[in-house]
Nucleic acid binder design. Sequence first.
DNA 1: CTAAATTCTTATCTTTTGTTAACGTTTCAG
DNA 2: CTGAAACGTTAACAAAAGATAAGAATTTAG
Lengths: 148, 148
Amino acid sequence: GFIVTGSVRYFHIKEGQDITGYFSFENEFVSSYKSFLTGQPGFTYIQALEDTRLITFTKKDMDQMLANPMLAYKIERFGRLVAEQYLCCYEDRIASFITQTPEERYLHLLNTGREILQRMPQHYIANYLGITPVSLSRIRRRVITNPL
Amino acid sequence: GFIVTGSVRYFHIKEGQDITGYFSFENEFVSSYKSFLTGQPGFTYIQALEDTRLITFTKKDMDQMLANPMLAYKIERFGRLVAEQYLCCYEDRIASFITQTPEERYLHLLNTGREILQRMPQHYIANYLGITPVSLSRIRRRVITNPL
DNA sequence: CTAAATTCTTATCTTTTGTTAACGTTTCAG
DNA sequence: CTGAAACGTTAACAAAAGATAAGAATTTAG
């Protein structure tokens, strides 16, 4: 789907707990991409966090358009560009887990993630950074009391 | 590029230290994908770890083929499928950082990552799991002495 | 074969995180 | 308005990870 207005969070369920992994906002695509591509049920759940308007299409819609010679070229291109855009985001995100500490990831979010910081509750943001809400609260205190 | 024989590692450099983020083996693609797509210099370095044979093409090659009406459709499709395949891998990898502990990630690698475990030195694998080599060594001891 | 370099383990200490629980605030539903 | 739920902070303790250094074991180069 494509978000016209509103926002969503992606989450996983592990041992009964739900853990938020990502967010999408207006003018972004939203899907459990792997599940969409493979047609297999996935383990990523999606929830709207505000009243959200979406334009959606199914895998079947996609396949039919790909099979239609009048549309195939445009849709192949569309699929390529969407996938590539996601890829760039994911590459950065993986690099952040490999090279940065949770505190560094939070500081980076402070500089670049206004949308997330302003619109998402803190315990979702903690999950997104790969830590617990308690730990994020401690990091915030550290950062506030030791600026620089 | 596409690896015919051999293997490579991807790494970042942070404060003088190099940190391995990923590996690719025979019959897989290899590139600093974001850098390739955007044309901007990236922060991902790639190094061959064995004698490695590659088939390579440049961004310019790609753009020329995309501009050629005889080839464009096939190349758009090719680009889409390659990007989508990467996307699925990355999605799983991000989920592992969000939902699993380092020990769980290592156990998962034991079950699925024969190629990496057999062909890569352990300190690269530690980086790949998002931890230090010392910490991986401790996890291995825990896992061996407390099986189950 | 030998010396140097690399890799892995182990130990010690410090820092950080996870877990659990308590508390105050805010938000929300009835 | 009121009680319940959700959210953020803090504290206390246990577990894990990072940093550093030392020492085997292995690999590599000359």
